[in-house]
Amino acid sequence: MSLQVVTANRLGDGLVVFLTADGGWSENIDDARIAEGKEAADALLAEASAPELDVVIVGPYLIDVEQQDGGLVPTKYREVLRTKGPSVREDLGYQAV
C-alpha cells in the first residue's frame, strides 16, 4: 500500500511545509500525517484544500513517501529536493540546519 503525505508552500514565506497530525503545518516531513491508500489520501488532501487554509498555505498536493531509517523520504527526487534544499547549495534550505 502506497504511503502519501500532503505538502504545500507556506503563504507568508513560501517555504515547504507538510500537513501534520494535528492539522498544522510543519517544515519537517517526519511530522507529516501519513495516509495509507487512496481513500485516506483523498481525505487528507480534502482537509488541506479547505478554503480557510488559503490564507495559510498555497498549492497543497499529495506526494508518495517511503519509511526509511525511521523517517519519511519522498519517492520522487523533486520532492526530496524540496525536503532538503538545492543540491548545488548544501549551505541553504532545510539541509543546512
Binding site: 513560501g14 523533486r78 529536493l81 524540496r82 534544499g85
Partner: peptide
C-alpha cells in the same frame, strides 16, 4: 496573476 506581473513566483523551495 497579480504577483506574477510583479515578478513574484512560487518556486520549489520558496518565493
Amino acid at each position: 496573476p497579480l504577483r506574477l506581473m510583479n515578478g513574484v513566483y512560487l518556486q520549489l523551495h520558496a518565493y
